[in-house]
Amino acid sequence: MSKVRIKTLKIDDRDVGAREDQTILEVARDNGIHIPTLCQLDGLTNLGGCRLCLVEIKGSNKLLPSCVTAVEEGMEVSTNTERLQKHRRSIVELFFTERNHVCAVCVSNNNCELQNLAKQVGMTHVHFPYMYPALSVDATHDRFALDHNRCVLCTRCVRVCDEIEGAHTLDVRGRGIEAYIITDLEQVWGESETCTSCGKCVNVCPTGALFEKNKSVAEMKKQTKFLPYLTMMRGARR
């Protein structure tokens, strides 16, 4: 067994211990300290893209994403300062302005991670202008559908399709505000030759962007916690 060193650090003024290969986010969670996240999902590689898990580290003016920042000895981390709260609220607001997130008509209403985040960060209204882009819905697949209006581009679906299912059906095309999720080489989903219809993408999607057809709002509850179990069992079988 290879040796792993133990580091001690402070998170929100609490002394905590951690293995050297852990990230700040993992250690915080182990110790019951909550840091909001969106693109991060246990079982997938970390992206550092949603910028909600940013934390402050004493001695540095830079905000660092806790999901990809490794712990260091003597680090003093703050996870919930006023500056962070302000930025997090703004970032969640930016998510809402980017596409057409209308909770009242969404299949994931009350089961939506974006909605929960808005509550968590105390977003009462959006003070940036909405962008109202004209986006399409791809409902060509037999069982699932992709609604670009509700997508937050967290790329959980892209990562699960590539890393866990191994199909790499989904990917991102375009840049910046024009970026969106595609299937294969931008064929419609129903004509995709690589999609195995496993449905993992639907389950990991934090919003109502990916959903199962013929399910009501009450039924559309997603299972996001299966990935670590799945990878563990695969490893055990080998």
Partner: peptide, 17 residues
Amino acid sequence: QSESCGKCVPCRVGTAQ
């Protein structure tokens, strides 16, 4: 805004805003 890669939200949406 047109050269932002779109990976992180502040740059993707912020520059467009």
